[in-house]
Design a protein around this nucleic acid. Structure first.
Length: 1083
RNA sequence: GGGCCUGUAGCUCAGCUGGUUAGAGCGCACGCCUGAUAAGCGUGAGGUCGGAUGUUCAAGUCAUCUCAGGCCCA
């Protein structure tokens, strides 16, 4: 017995059952066990940060990951998939700060780094186990990944591998110490992450200061003695000015500028960008023009006299240099540089060996040695108990006094980041930091990227490729607490003498500094080895009588996750073979936001360490927006809770929707209603209906699935057809999946299941399932339907694993695998694919559709039998094609015969042709249209002759055109006096003439219909035998008498008779005539 | 400001290397079927392809510009 589906099928309930089944039978483990000796297909799981709840968009990447891994397993691979958790970093620290009531990073050392990090660790493990969290999502949505052996980035083993990697970098000379300009909140002296930064933008007014300073030496002798015009919005940075920059290709001018006010007339000779002359006030006269490149090397007078700059040491100081970032969009086209306060500035200072002037303390105050400005705040700061005024105004006053101010207003409106905690403006500030010299192996990064198969390709070549082209130094260190410590120890007397530690064993060579200051071995310390702060901070190395202390920083968390290919295996300390077998990954998948995150760090590390890409195939998914195309955010309240959706619709529906609705690598507008409409009531219902149909009759007939297999070639044509299609579809499916064309692959399955299996095969074969006793033909029908359905389920199993499993379990027999996920999805049997048959069925379907549209047009119901259709054919092949599927066509459209019309047998066809532009265009170029127009006017005879192979010469005004049959396309065919429809080169004409016989047949079918309705209304069983009596007009009666046998047969009637005095009968109508029918059960 | 993506029927999406009645599903309208029946099937009406210019015999498809939306970066 095949178990019926519940009357009200609940997908979420069904999925819970399947989850239980998987768990009880350890199906996931069995799929791995089954393939343990199979070739490897390696997948890397990008570790999610265990912070906060997962959203609907997390289902996207996970569906892709899971579907591909399940698919590859079914294709015969061993798919290793270790889950992972990203545990370090700022988000965790901030959450812990909140929980502990810590307001500010600077409180943490007093609070105790050990206690703080302990709290971080606890939070992380709590989150990993949290209900409604990642683990629950993973399980509930059916994402099979090895959670029990998940790699966790804060374990000693993981960090040890990370240290090993860092030491590789260090030994290659790729790690160095430098400055990084970071956004810093001045009043709390803390750098802000980009995430924090983006929260605090405010529109503010800043000074717009045009100042001028004298040129002392230049290649252009004319300009010596005149002044350059410089623009800045941060006068406080002028104290740290070391150079100015111009654009090499920008045009500059020297002008005479006369400015008159009520009090005085001023005259200046200024140098600025030609395009920026409009910023000058008063009369302007151009004296000279030159390119920016000519200005380079020009020496100017220091803007403010405080900074300790010695031009003998740094000859480029206080000169004009070239800067690629200079624009003429605003300002004067001449940019002042203060390397400690801008990324461009700092970069230029390295390139041109400029002095590094740091005149500001980390908390935003001017250092000693800057005259009246020392000790002042750089900007207006608000503290809890007082306010301080910034120096900008006084710097401008100083400029005025020294005749260096040209014009300063306070009207520069822009959006500027502010500290989200204090509300004070942030400052860009150079901090000491550790870097990886990624530009040194840029060529390798680019080269290896070309070996990666990106889906979609444009992310690889565009977004990612461009990023690599401009690869920057990787800022590695973070001044934080909860992270993998940077394993560098520095000589107390020589900051360039550094030891890198690459393992726990090496760490043990150091000594532990006890609270009393004594140094003991790590074992003797009694402390448990923990590769975190503060433990590692207490380790001291002694070499050649010098002590080495650890640098205080931890590393960027992105390095952790980028190291997972080997760190998840604790390589090279363990699992060497396994690592080599599973590197690089065959496949990874994450969201596009990882382009410069995980995708990059994986690539960077594997390039630097192994000179290989880390992954061979990558599927990038785009964002999920709400149904109106708006980004989901808690603020707007348009987020979608994945658990809620799965509780309502089931995981399968969501998973399927995410693939089928549109390609995952395009932005998806997530519409819950669409899932119900397009997935559940379309594809899923088609599957369950197919199953329900199968079981309805299989149970009646006691079809068990264990019957002798009927060879395909002994089955009817239509069975061979659907089996052929099924195999063709499988073949295409595999091709598409292997190319990661997820959407096309799944739409293919869906269309096959709905259109071909359900709407055509089943509908066409319904009679075979309920007619008569079980025989060979019937068994063939059952076997065929079951085989094709199982094939669809195996293809769907990767993406809709629950429903596929459920239906499979209902269908499986003893010898089948116990789960669909243990099934092989082999290459299809090519011998079962009959392209010819598929083509013939296609023609049959087209003829049926055309005939239906004709019936519709002529307003003739399908129940009314018709004599014939006419089909023009060009040749015997076409004719035989149609003859082979004639039976299907006739039955489907209720017509007695097909007549073929050929040129030889009839002259009633008149055809129209149009030009085949593809072939004409090449030959006739500009005159293509003339020829095409002539083709439109071709007569039927001309077309017939062309078809026979003749060449036709068209006489046009200016030339003759020779055309063959290749040059035309048949547009339409008409048959005189007939109602005709044509499409795709097939034409059908319908004979609408009715004979008495046909009318009788029509009436009898109507009658059968009424009787069947009555049977149903009266609640008779489909197997009940009946007797019919009726009273009707002569016209109806004649029909019923002549079709008596047919009627009895169809309605399971033992007898049917006319009764003039019929009582208690039902009145019905046929062809506008009333009649009475009475049916009675007979036993 | 730079890079990438998107813009085709009411909605969600197809449209290969440029070729001439621009396709599908949903929705809608009308109808069929009544032994898959709180199922199944069909027919039809709806777009000139965001806008402009250009290349070409020919452009939704190529180029340039432009508008709108999204993402990443500055």
């Amino acid at each position: 017995m095949y178990k019926n589906l519940p009357e009200k099928l609940s997908y979420p309930d069904l999925e819970q059952d399947v989850l239980k089944f998987w768990e009880e039978n350890e199906i996931f483990n069995k799929t791995l066990e089954l393939r343990k000796d199979a070739p490897y297909f390696t997948f890397y799981e990008g570790p999610p940060t265990v912070n906060g709840k997962p959203g609907i968009h997390h289902m996207m990447a996970r569906t892709i990951k899971d579907a591909i891994c399940r698919y590859k397993t079914m294709r015969g691979y061993y798919v290793r998939r270790q889950a992972g958790w990203d545990t370090h970093g700022l988000p965790v620290e901030i959450q812990v700060e909140k929980e502990l009531g810590i307001k500010d990073k600077s409180e943490i050392p007093n609070f105790g780094i050990d206690k703080f990090n302990k709290a971080c660790r606890e939070l992380v493990y709590r989150n990993i186990d949290m209900a409604e969290g990642w683990r629950t999502l993973t399980t509930r949505m059916g994402y099979w990944v090895n959670l029990d052996e998940a790699y966790i980035t804060c374990t000693n083993e993981y960090i040890e591998s990370v240290w090993w990697a860092l030491k590789q970098y260090f030994d290659k000379g790729l790690i160095y110490r430098g400055f990084k300009v970071v956004p810093q909140s001045p009043t709390i002296a803390t750098p802000l992450s980009s995430h924090e930064l983006s929260q605090g933008y405010k529109d503010v007014q800043d000074p717009s200061c045009f100042l001028k300073t004298k040129l002392l030496e230049s290649k252009i002798s004319e300009i010596v003695g005149s002044e350059i015009l410089i623009w800045t919005t941060t006068p406080w940075t002028l104290l740290g000015n070391v150079a100015t920059a111009v654009g090499e290709d920008i045009d500059y001018v020297q002008v005479k500028n006369v400015r008159k006010t009520k009090e005085l007339v001023e005259e200046f000779t200024l140098v600025l960008a030609k395009e920026r002359i409009s910023v000058l006030e008063g009369e302007v006269e151009i004296l000279n023009e030159f390119k920016g490149s000519e200005l380079i090397g020009t020496v100017y007078e220091a803007i403010l006299p405080f900074a300790p700059i010695d031009r003998n040491e740094t000859p480029n100081a206080l000169t004009i240099i070239a800067g690629d970032f200079v624009s003429t969009d605003n300002g004067s086209g001449i940019v002042h540089l203060a390397p400690a306060f801008g990324e461009d500035d700092y970069r230029m200072s390295l390139v041109h060996n400029l002095p590094f002037i740091q005149h500001v303390t980390p908390d935003g105050h001017i250092r000693e040695g800057y005259g009246e400005f020392s000790g002042r705040a750089i900007k207006n700061f608000t503290y809890e108990d007082h306010k301080e005024e910034g120096v900008d105004k006084d710097v401008v006053i100083y400029l005025k006094k020294t005749f260096k101010n040209y014009r300063t207003t306070n009207d520069y409106l822009h959006s500027y980041p502010h500290c989200w905690r204090t509300g004070n403006p942030i400052m860009y500030y150079a901090r000491e930091s550790w870097f990886i010299k990624s530009p040194e192996y840029k060529a390798d990064l680019i080269k290896l990227n070309k070996e990666i198969n990106w889906q979609p390709p444009e992310v690889g070549s565009g977004r990612f490729g461009n990023w690599l082209e401009e690869v920057k130094e990787w800022s590695l260190s973070r001044d934080r607490f909860w992270g993998s410590p940077l394993p560098l120890w520095v000589n107390e007397d020589d900051e360039n003498d550094i030891i890198a530690v690459g393992s726990i064993a090496e760490l043990k060579e150091g000594k532990y500094k006890m609270p009393d200051g004594s140094l003991v071995s790590l074992e003797e310390s009694g402390e448990e080895i923990d590769l975190h702060r503060p433990f590692v901070d207490h380790v001291v190395f002694e070499r050649n009588g010098k002590k080495f202390y650890r640098v205080p920083e931890v590393i960027d968390v992105w390095f952790d996750s980028g190291a997972m290919p080997f760190a998840q295996l604790h390589y090279p300390f363990e699992n060497k073979e396994l690592f080599e077998k599973s590197f690089p990954a065959d496949f990874i998948a994450e969201g596009i936001d990882q382009t410069r995150g995980w995708f990059y760090t994986l690539h960077n590390i594997s390039t630097a360490l192994f000179n290989k890409p880390a992954y061979k195939n990558i599927v990038v998914n785009e964002l999920i927006l709400d149904k109106n195309g708006v980004k989901m955010s808690k603020r707007l309240g348009n987020t979608i809770d994945p658990f809620e959706v799965m509780d309502n619709l089931g995981a399968d529906a969501v998973r399927w929707y995410l693939f089928v609705n549109n390609p995952p690598w395009k932005t998806t507008l997530f519409n819950t209603d669409d899932i119900a409409k397009t997935v559940i009531s379309d594809f899923f219902r088609s599957l369950t209906n197919t199953y329900a149909f199968f079981t309805l009759y299989a149970n009646i007939d006691d079809f068990t699935g264990n019957e002798d297999f009927i060879p395909i070639n002994e089955r009817p044509e239509i069975d061979k057809w659907i089996i052929s299609r099924s195999n063709s579809v499988l073949s295409q499916f595999i091709e598409l999946m292997d190319a990661y064309e997820l959407t096309k692959a799944h739409r293919l399955i869906q269309e096959f299941a709905i259109n071909e299996l359900s709407n055509w095969y089943i509908r066409r074969n319904r009679r075979r399932f309920w007619k008569g006793k079980i025989d060979k033909d019937k068994i063939a029908a059952y076997q065929t339907l079951k085989e094709v359905l199982v094939n669809i389920l195996t293809m769907s199993a990767s993406t809709a694993p629950f429903l596929s499993e459920n239906l499979y379990l209902r269908l499986r027999t003893e010898n089948d695998p116990i789960s669909i996920h243990l099934y092989d999805l082999p290459n299809p049997d090519k011998s079962l694919i009959d392209v010819d048959l598929e083509r013939r069925m296609d023609i049959a379907q087209k003829i049926v559709f055309l005939s239906r549209s004709l019936r519709e047009k002529e307003n003739i119901k399908t129940r009314q039998a018709l004599k014939r259709i006419l089909v023009p054919v060009m040749n015997e092949i076409q004719k035989n094609d149609i003859i082979s599927v004639e039976k299907i066509i006739l039955e489907e459209i209720n017509v007695k015969s097909i007549e073929f019309v050929t040129e030889e047998t009839s002259n009633v066809i008149s055809r129209k042709a149009k030009g085949n532009f593809r072939s004409l265009g090449k030959r006739y170029g500009k005159t293509t249209n003339l020829v095409a127009n002539a083709i439109k006017d071709l007569s039927n005879e001309d077309i017939i002759n062309l078809e026979k192979g003749d060449t036709l010469t068209l006489k046009l005004k200016d030339f003759d055109a020779e055309i063959t049959f290749e040059d035309i396309e048949i547009l339409s065919e008409d048959i005189k006096g007939w109602s005709v429809a044509s499409e795709h080169g097939i034409t059908v004409a319908l004979d609408t003439e009715l004979t008495q016989e046909l009318i009788n047949e029509g009436i009898s079918r109507e009658f059968v219909n009424r009787v069947q309705n009555l049977r149903k209304d009266l609640g008779f069983e489909v197997t009940d035998r009946i007797v019919i009596s009726y009273n009707a007009t002569e016209k109806i009666n004649d029909a019923l008498v002549s079709e008596k046998e047919y009627i009895c047969n169809e309605t399971l009637s033992l007898n049917i008779e006319f009764d003039e005095n019929l009582q208690e009968a039902n009145e019905v109508e046929i062809l506008d005539e009333k009649l009475l029918i009475k049916i009675e059960k007979q036993n």
